[in-house]
Amino acid sequence: MNTERRNLRNGLLFISPWIIGFLFFTIYPLFSSLYYSLTKYNLITEPEFVGLQNYRELLFVDDVFFTVLGNTMYMIFVGLTLTTIVTIFIAILLNTKDIKGMSFFRVVFFIPTLVPFVVLAILWIWILQPDSGVVNSVLGLIGIEGPGWFASPKWAKPGFILMMIWMSGNMILIYLAALGDIPKTLYEAASIDGANVLQKVFHITLPMLRPAILFNGITGMIAIFQSFAEAFIITNGGPDNATLFYSLYLYKNAFQYFNMGYASAMAWILLIIALTMTLIFFRLSKRWE
């Protein structure tokens, strides 16, 4: 009893910085945004209470909202999935024993995450230039006519996926760390049973990576929901709204269309979607266990 109370006190003391930060930098802004989401507010004149109107409009009237949601989901289901496959594959390669220059390779994969956003955006416009860009030039060498990338409604999102994979150094590191956690004995036992590489990957590595995949999946999903700088600079949502992503549309509503209330409602819907998807991720990963 005494210990329990002391532990409660100590626990709360240790997390007290978080409690303070949570109250001031999260709860307060969060609830102001909840309030704003129920108002018509342009940030200048007093907010005017309109009830659930913003939510109704988003969900039942605004067809752009669903385009935006679709674009974002595409990035999560297609983009994040591809990124996950590529990053796990690279991490497995990097985790191979007895390879020289491994620290060099690790740095190489991490470099892209260090480039400042503005430079990054301009760099990729340049690289994915349909006519003379590096990617299409290389594709041309092997006889493939490269697509229009950011110039094409069909290929703009895949262009952003390429960028996303390129900037996935964080994920690789996390997988790499998780791979290091897998006990060697598991592999040894599998070798004795005569398992080949693929079998080891599917029966040992991937199941053991589950927590890391879950973690990367959730943080990656949130990063996609929140990212807007690249699309803002490169395509500003075009062509044909193909790259109008959630945060970009939210941002435009808040600061360019003077609809802070509408933007706040979008944020709350986003919060609910993100929480639901996180729960689904957790469920799926449990079932996999």
Partner: peptide
């Protein structure tokens, strides 16, 4: 709290 978009707050 990981899920909060910065633009909103």
């Amino acid at each position: 709290t990981l899920m909060l978009p910065f633009q909103v707050i």
